[in-house]
């Protein structure tokens, strides 16, 4: 009981503090302090409520138990991370995104293909492609190849649509200017159209980065070697070792966010000239 009351008091105190923090305008304290305080409060509330209400650990383990599980199995979790993220998601991401950009550049010169592929690509991008995972597992086996294949298909269409959109972003005036410089099509592409497409390409890369990890993890539910985040989640759920499951989820969350963060940093470095980056 005391723990529940403590949780409620903590909530009220953190709320009050956050309101005060939010009033500080434009400071680093507000930008970072508020979300950090919110996250810490959420974790503390979780811990206190789970302990106070005596929730069974097979339903929801407290964060401290998850932390312990995380520290106790670093080698296993690292193995899962390499299997799913590096081998499955990352290789599929690189192949799928580069294939999509190349396809976009190829079809960009033909209005006919653009008008045909864009609506189809837009439609396919909204489909539950993840459902193709069992097919790829059957074709490419249980290893990381089938996971990479599903990731390729998942990221291809959002990436294609974004890149084609981006290649149209250059101004008429700018293209005319390139023509007055007697620039070849290849020069126009590398010096004008690809740079002006960069914000769109990075948007596609960001969307794809989250899709890639999801695809790789879900594909492992259909068959995998005895390693990998999806494998770990499904087997440990079966053994009711929920603290370990949450540890895997934490690893997935951190690596997913880090992946997204890296893409964002690359975007900032590559498109520093764009208005949305100069704020």
């Amino acid at each position: 009981m005391t723990l529940i009351i403590a949780a409620l008091i903590l909530w009220a105190a953190a709320w009050w503090l956050n309101t005060r923090l939010a009033r500080l305008d434009g400071t680093a304290l507000k930008r970072y302090g508020c979300p950090i305080l919110f996250g810490v409060t959420l974790l503390a509330m979780w811990e206190l409520l789970v302990r106070g209400l005596e929730v069974s650990p097979v339903i929801l383990p407290p964060p401290s138990a998850v932390w312990v599980a995380l520290l106790e199995n670093p080698r296993m979790l690292w193995g899962d991370f390499v299997q799913t993220f590096v081998k499955g998601a990352l290789s599929g991401y690189v192949i799928g995104c580069s294939a999509a950009v190349l396809t976009a550049i190829l079809i960009d010169r033909s209005d006919f293909w653009k008008r045909g592929l864009l609506p189809v690509g837009n439609f396919v991008a909204a489909l539950p492609i993840i459902g193709m995972a069992p097919i790829f597992v059957m074709w490419f086996g249980f290893g990381w190849e089938s996971k990479a294949a599903i990731v390729v298909v998942m990221v291809f269409f959002p990436m294609l649509v974004n890149t084609v959109e981006g290649l149209r972003a250059a101004d008429r005036m700018q293209e005319d200017l390139m023509r007055t410089y007697a620039a070849s099509p290849a020069q126009t592409l590398t010096k004008l159209r690809l740079p002006s497409a960069a914000p769109f390409i990075f948007n596609g890369l960001k969307i794809s980065s989250t899709l890639a990890l999801i695809g790789a993890i879900v594909a492992e539910f259909f068959g995998s070697p005895t390693q990998g985040m999806g494998f770990r989640i499904s087997t440990e759920v079966g053994r009711l070792a929920l603290d370990l499951v949450w540890a895997v989820i934490a690893v997935a969350a951190v690596s997913g966010s880090a992946f997204y963060g890296v893409v964002t940093l690359a975007e900032r470095a590559a498109t520093f000239w764009h208005p949305s980056q100069r704020g």
């Binding site: 879900v218 539910f221 989820i249």
Partner: peptide
């Protein structure tokens, strides 16, 4: 949004 939420679906 960057967290693979689908992965926790079975859990």
């Amino acid at each position: 949004q960057t967290i693979p939420i689908l992965a926790i679906a079975p859990m």
